[in-house]
Amino acid sequence: MAAHSSGSHPRQALKVTFSIDKGKIQILRFERLPMIAPPAVGDPPQAGKNGGYWIELRDGNDRVLFHRVLHNPLRDSVEVHSPDGKIERVFGDPGKPSVFDVLLPDDGAATSIVVMGESLTPVTARKSAARAAGELARFSVPSGRSGNPGRTTP
């Protein structure tokens, strides 16, 4: 199976830097860049059904335009690798804010950035991932070329 470019992918992306600290998430900064944002893969996860974390771009009618699965956005675990191929994951409270970038397509129809997930609390604090994901935070798509909105949500 070979991948082929259609050559029609928009070369405009929105790079958003999030921070999660003490159960709160905020956008630290954003920047519009002339580059291709990696596409969404697979069916969009659904609140109440899926676990894990992802980000959605939604339009004014709250329809999901795009989603991106996030890997361990709370940074509440680390992998310990081994040359024998046996990988382990160690969970715990990182004790410091998690800061991470997400590259989204700069879709003019998008009005909201929605953070979906199980919790904004590290796994040890909540003992286990006991519930499926739901909406954790919602932000307006920032305008301008770049900036530091500094908005927080509970």
Partner: peptide, 16 residues
């Protein structure tokens, strides 16, 4: 890889 279940999402994992 597996494990004890710590960190495993409760629902269907969102990863592909």
């Amino acid at each position: 890889y597996g494990g004890t279940g710590a960190g495993t999402p409760a629902g269907e994992p969102s990863q592909p």
